[in-house]
Every structure is written in structure tokens, then in C-alpha cells.
Design a protein around this nucleic acid. Sequence first.
DNA 1: CAACATCCTTTCCAAATGGAAAGTTTTTGT
DNA 2: ACAAAAACTTTCCATTTGGAAAGGATGTTG
Lengths: 203, 203
Amino acid sequence: MAFARHGFEGANIRDIATEVGVTHTLIRYHFGNKSDLWKAVIDDMYARLNAAMSKDQAGGFDLRTKEGLRAWLRFYIGYCAKNPEQARIMINESMVRSERLDYMVGHIRRSHRALIPVFRHLMKDGVVPDMWLVSFFYIISTMCQMPFVLSTTIERLYGVDMTSEPAIEAHYEAVVAFMLGEPPRHQLQWPALPDWAKQAQAS
Amino acid sequence: MAFARHGFEGANIRDIATEVGVTHTLIRYHFGNKSDLWKAVIDDMYARLNAAMSKDQAGGFDLRTKEGLRAWLRFYIGYCAKNPEQARIMINESMVRSERLDYMVGHIRRSHRALIPVFRHLMKDGVVPDMWLVSFFYIISTMCQMPFVLSTTIERLYGVDMTSEPAIEAHYEAVVAFMLGEPPRHQLQWPALPDWAKQAQAS
DNA sequence: CAACATCCTTTCCAAATGGAAAGTTTTTGT
DNA sequence: ACAAAAACTTTCCATTTGGAAAGGATGTTG
């Protein structure tokens, strides 16, 4: 989506319209002004996120155990990999204090409220070390999101397509190893590195 | 800087100029077109980063030990906290494939090349678990950067000023705890959470 | 001091962009 | 089938924005 790629100011209704094959005035007719369109996008985004979360959470895992945490991480990392625009939009709007940021924070707060008790449990049970909750939240979420948000950079830098299944799997294993201190159970063939990185290994 | 806040397309030379107190044509005279200005900003950004890195690395720490890693993390997190625009610009440009992204990748590659051998060492010595190098890189760097990149959101969400010393310190302790599995050595008074988050704790 | 280059301002332009207004087609309810 | 409402298009406008051009001020050098 254009808002994810160019930010609110960089995106323009006309391009969005032609992308969908309509005129820019039609978009205005249905959504109102640019801010209204943006809000509609955000609402839809969170609706889809919540739908995916609750569906898979009902279908499954108890976040308070290591096993459940692993399952949740696999789900969440997969979701981030397939919907990187969502994190991109949110990051874009975090760059400057704005009315849009406040609107977004309403959604974020609801998500976080649901996860806080779970995260506290993980600490209490010693699954993860005790730490400041805010840090824990942003460490976890950015760990899962950022490699996919930055996929174009990683592609240019390491020649790896982060949206590919092996890369997603490798990253999942890395996150689990990092969080739980457990090395990958089945030895993975990690996506190969380019020459400049391999040579750096030697030095 | 405007490029960090609004992205390349969202920023405009005229506003940048008035911010500095000159006319927009003067900026054009000195830097050329908008892309040239952007490149000059990036070059300066990396020059300052490299200066800070090499100065403090010379003054210091051996990244291959736990102690050294801790010291480096403290430095790097502090740097990220005080220069969040740097990560912001890079993230902005990662949103879409562009000539600017390629330009940036040149700088990034140099930084990464210097760190890869160090990171490999950390894994070989068992300081951190074995994992895919690309994941490790982005886990580490985003852990250190993102809370400060997203400081406006965190402020609105948790009422915490991430740029304050206690918040930086708390985050540093969290990162160390997360990476090395070591709980904070001296018990910190973590910045307080707002009511909505405390109540979530109870449930 | 005169010629020249550097630095900076003023003025202008064309394209892009958000938005308004008015008109046309399609759908819907009766 | 017909009137009203909803959906959509065309046309236009004011503002913003990157950029070009020309002129003026301020050194700088022989």
C-alpha cells in the first residue's frame, strides 16, 4: 500500500487511485479526504491483524509455556513476513507527533493490553529474564517485524529474499535461539551469504 | 532532520531552508538538487557514526567478551537514543526500492563488514547461541535502535520519555538481560507504567 | 582599482497535488 | 416505469514544490 511505501505525506491519492483503476475523485467520494482514507486503511489493517490473531489463538497456543511461546512466535513472524506494510505504516507515523499517531495509538493500546499479562507471566515463570516491560515489548515485536520491514535493504545487502520460506524459517529459529537460548533443533541450511560477507568472516 | 521525519518525498527543501534560516535556492546552490542534498546528509550521518564508533572502540572495548559486549551495547544504545534520526532515515529509505537505497547500502555494507567477524566470534565462543548471521544482525541492531525510533509512540502509549536517562538505562539492562540471560545486577526502578497497563497486569 | 569568482537573493515557471463543484450514469425503492 | 438516491466522471482551481535564470552583493587576486 502506498501509505506504507511513501508515508502519509509522500503518498498521493491520484497514484493510489490509478493503482486500483479508479479516479482520485472517486476515492474522495467514498472515503472523504486523505486523512479519512488513511484512517480507513488503519482500521482495516487492525481488523485483519486482530482476526488473524484471535483465529490462531483460539486454534491454539497457550502463550505461558515455552512450547506455546514458540508456536506464537512462529505464527507472528509468519504474519509479519507476509504483511510487512502494517509495521511499515506504523513506523512511518511514529516519526513525528501527529493526529494520526494518536489515532494509531488507540489501536496499539488494545493490542498491547491483551499481551501484557501474558508477557508478565513469561517473566514470572522464568521463561525469559525479568526486565522492563516496555523494553520487552519492543524487543519482541521489532525482532519479529523489522527483518521484513527492511527486506529491500537486506536483499540489496545480503542478496537474501526475506519473504522466502527458508529465510522466514531461519529467522524464526534465530529468534527462538535468541529468546530461549536454544540452538535450532534440526540443523538448518541457512541462506547463503554474499562474498563480501564471507570474506569478512575470514578476517 | 526533515528527511528523517517526513521521508524523502515528504520533506521539502523550502521548509528545510526556513528551518535553517536561508532561502531554498541557497540550499540548491550549495548542494545541488534534492537527491544531492539527501546524499550529503547521509554521508555526514555516517561520518559522524563512524567517528563515534572508532573513537569509542579505540578507547575501549573488546567485543569478543561478555564484558566488552556489554560495554559496546551501552555505547551503541546510548548513541541510538541520542541520534534516532539516523535509523529513521534508513528505515524510511528501506520502504521502497530506489536509487537512494542503493546509495545507503554502500555505507551499511562497510559497517556490517566490520562487525561480522566480531559477531561470528561471539557465537563461536558461546556468548550468544548459534544462529543465522543476518537474523542476528537485525535482531541486535533493531533491539538497540527501535525503541528510540518509535519514541513518540512509546510516549503516547506508555507515557515514558525514551530519551530520558532512566529509560535508556532500563532499556540497556533489558537488552543485556535478553541477550545474555542475565537479570539486571543492581535493581533498577523501572519507569512507571500508565494505569491501562497496570490494570492489564492484574487480569 | 578593476576584473573575476564566489555567495546569495529575487523572481519566475511548470508540474504535481488535494480538494471542490457540477454533471452523468447506475441502482433502488415504490 | 419513474423518481430519488447512490455511484462515478469530468472539469476546474489554489497551493505547494522542485527547479531554472538573472541579477546583486561580497570578497579575492593581480
